[in-house]
Amino acid sequence: MKHFKIIFALLLSLGILSACGADGENVEKGKGNGEVTKGQSDFPLSVSDALSNKVTLEEQPKHIVSLIPSNTEILFELGLNKEIVGVSDFDNYPKEAAEKEKIGGMEFNVEKIISLNPDLVLAHESTAVSAEEGLEQLRGAGVKVYIVRDAHNFEEVYTTMENIGTLVGKKDEAESIISEMKADLESIKEKVSGVSEKKKVYIEVSPSPDIYSTGKNTFIDQMLSLVNAENVMSDQEGWIQVNQEAVIASNPDIIITTYGYYSENPKEQVMGREGWKDVSAVKNEEVHDVHSDLVTRTGPRLVEGVEEIAKSIYPELFTE
């Protein structure tokens, strides 16, 4: 269990668990839903963030610190490389993120952030409670902090991107990115629309010995539905510790792992498990790995994640 707790902490710091509806500790959505009024793109700008904190920006931010990778990816996609002055230790995309000042992980360095003289810090609802003391210290130092709403589905991701775009004076760019994401997603859905017999899929997000998967009401489950596939764990909810016998009994056609970026040979790990040799996916060597960042970070690359999952399940539909 210790192994998974380490992974759990890492995923939480990346804004993954709550984005997938997994941790059961999400802040209750109320009046402060973090939505920015459409059409409100001129400065000064006054908005309420995800926790009902009022944030007023007199002018377009020129120095931005991001506390979580999903926010960072959105900012880069909006063309704000020059404006980004600090990112978390976990930020690894795009490559330019590695060149930015690192401000810490789950426990960010308040003094370091203040030294960067940001006029906007983008935090995230998934970690806002645990980071409350640090965020208050930033506010006390006169730093503007905006807590981005936790997104649980694609529509909420689009809203998040639109909100951030408006907040940083890049509303048109955000709308263009959203339109492109929607078009790409529709293209994927069209390719799989003719599937007559849905493949049964098992997604594994943490390897042995503490094996975890995702049930219903998670982003990954939604992705499987979008590509016309059946999640064999959909009878359970959220992130779940796996009973291996249950997986074997479900006999998935496809197995997809999402931990190849930190665990070597994920396919071989699954293929070599005792008792799994008669599972269809193992017998037919239909075990594939998709990078976790593509299917968990609530930002512009989510559609790429959907496509990677779709290609793993129905490769014949994506030949060009």
Score class of each variant (00 low, 15 high):
residue 210 D to K: 03
residue 284 N to S: 06
residue 119 D to M: 05
residue 172 D to A: 11
residue 154 F to W: 05
residue 87 V to S: 07
residue 117 N to V: 11
residue 35 E to N: 11
residue 245 E to G: 08
residue 80 L to I: 01
residue 288 H to N: 15
residue 10 L to N: 14
residue 203 I to L: 09
residue 52 S to F: 06
residue 97 A to Y: 04
residue 76 F to T: 05
residue 199 K to Y: 00
residue 102 K to V: 03
residue 144 K to S: 13
residue 205 V to P: 00
residue 230 E to H: 09
residue 315 P to E: 08
residue 6 I to E: 14
residue 158 Y to G: 03
residue 36 V to S: 00
residue 68 I to M: 14
residue 66 S to T: 03
residue 140 G to S: 10
residue 234 S to K: 10
residue 293 D to Q: 03
residue 19 A to T: 13
residue 4 F to A: 06
residue 249 A to N: 12
residue 168 V to N: 02
residue 145 V to R: 01
residue 100 K to C: 07
residue 231 N to I: 05
residue 90 F to S: 15
residue 157 V to G: 10
residue 223 M to A: 08
residue 77 E to C: 04
residue 15 G to K: 02
residue 216 K to R: 08
residue 101 E to D: 11
residue 7 I to P: 01
residue 173 E to V: 06
residue 310 A to D: 07
residue 116 L to G: 05
residue 4 F to E: 03
residue 280 S to I: 12
residue 187 S to D: 15
residue 224 L to F: 02
residue 264 E to I: 12
residue 78 L to V: 05
residue 91 D to P: 07
residue 277 K to M: 09
residue 156 E to L: 02
residue 138 L to T: 07
residue 10 L to Y: 11
residue 36 V to M: 01
residue 77 E to N: 13
residue 1 M to C: 12
residue 256 I to S: 03
residue 25 E to Y: 10
residue 16 I to G: 10
residue 28 E to W: 08
residue 134 G to Y: 07
residue 179 S to T: 14
residue 47 V to R: 00
residue 110 V to D: 07
residue 134 G to C: 09
residue 14 L to V: 07
residue 255 I to H: 03
residue 27 V to N: 12
residue 134 G to H: 05
residue 121 V to P: 08
residue 264 E to Q: 12
residue 46 S to M: 05
residue 151 A to I: 00
residue 289 D to V: 09
residue 259 Y to N: 04
residue 260 G to E: 09
residue 29 K to E: 14
residue 157 V to R: 07
residue 114 I to N: 02
residue 306 V to G: 05
residue 137 Q to D: 14
